[in-house]
Simulated assay, not measured.
Amino acid sequence: MLSLFQNRWDRILTKKAIIILAVIIIPLMIGVAIMFSGKPVFKETIAFVTERDDVQHMPSDSAFRVAAVHQKPEFSDLVLGKYAAIVEKNQREYKVTTLKSKADQKMIQQFFETGKMPDSYRSEDEVRTERGTGTNILGFIVMLVLMQGVALASLYPEDRMLKTFRRILVSPVHVGKYLLVQFIFTCLCLYIPTYLAIVITNVFFHADIGFRLDILAGLLCVLTVLATGFAIFMASVMDRNISLLSSGISVVTCVLSGCFISFAPHHSLLNTLCSILPQKAYMAFIHGVEMGDSMWEYKTQIVYILMWSAVFCFLGGFITRRRTNIGIYE
């Protein structure tokens, strides 16, 4: 196993693109996210569907920017956060389509009917402040770590493509041992640069990260295990375009999980989907810890996240063994 680990280390050092991404780009993005985590966000945009070119008497409020559009935006624009809501006027009534809560939906409708938002409405800046600096920072890092994990696992599909995977299995190294080495290697290469980037930003720039460094180490460890399991699974399922598909999955699932901003859809199907995602449990976990709770008060969330990691690894190993047995990797 040690020789296989050394082999992966020697080979990853020759991958300049991955090294630059892991050692420079990702830590730089993490540092920027931490430095600007307390800055105000852009106003949310509401799409107002209208056929008129010159829209008059549109409501205005400091919490929103209202944009007139001639064609109703796609539902995906709501999912990806391009618009906070889509408003259509049917005769004298306003129809509001949004992924926000029903209470927010009613407030937006009232906004268009009366021209002002209720005093009870909270802007995105207020929501971010309530979430906490550490939760906002780690929420952004979740997406980066998920994408970076897949990049670091690229040696696995490369072995299959170059036909070296089968030759490795002829030695005393079996599929389980090979994947275990890949798991440990990916986990370490993910954890160390990410943790160091946060520590350096905190120590040298005195940036607030919301957590003590020892607590952050544990929170980041749980995330790294999840990201590594996801990377092993994606690298086992696909041979090409792994990073492209994995990045898309990471972005969409992180948006649905509320990694960037609190997300509570009132659509029953979408709400069920969001509650299943492991990132959702992770966000609840880190938010509770930042608010002063002990990590062990979130055993359910921790076990759930580790269960997802184990399922990813199991499926990755199962798929690899099955394909190996039927001779696909000959």
Rank of each mutant, 00 (worst) to 15 (best):
D10G: 11
A17C: 09
I18Q: 01
I30R: 01
M35S: 07
F36Y: 07
T45Y: 05
T50L: 02
R52Y: 11
R52H: 12
D54H: 15
D61M: 12
A63S: 13
R65V: 09
V66G: 01
A68R: 11
Q71R: 13
P73D: 06
P73Q: 01
K82W: 06
Y83L: 06
Y94A: 03
T97E: 10
T98K: 01
L99E: 07
K102G: 08
A103I: 11
D104V: 14
F111E: 03
K116M: 12
P118S: 03
P118T: 00
S120N: 11
G132T: 03
T135Y: 08
T135K: 08
N136R: 05
N136S: 04
F140H: 02
F140R: 09
L146V: 01
A151I: 14
L152G: 00
A153G: 14
S154Y: 13
R160E: 04
T164I: 13
I168G: 08
S171K: 06
V175R: 02
G176A: 07
L179G: 02
Q182N: 13
Y191C: 02
A197K: 00
I215Q: 10
I232G: 00
M238Q: 00
D239M: 11
D239H: 11
R240H: 13
N241D: 13
S243I: 14
L244N: 08
V251T: 05
T253A: 03
C254P: 02
A264T: 13
A281Y: 10
A284I: 12
G292N: 01
D293V: 09
M295C: 12
I302C: 14
F314W: 07
G316Q: 00
G317N: 09
T320F: 00
T324L: 10
E330Q: 08
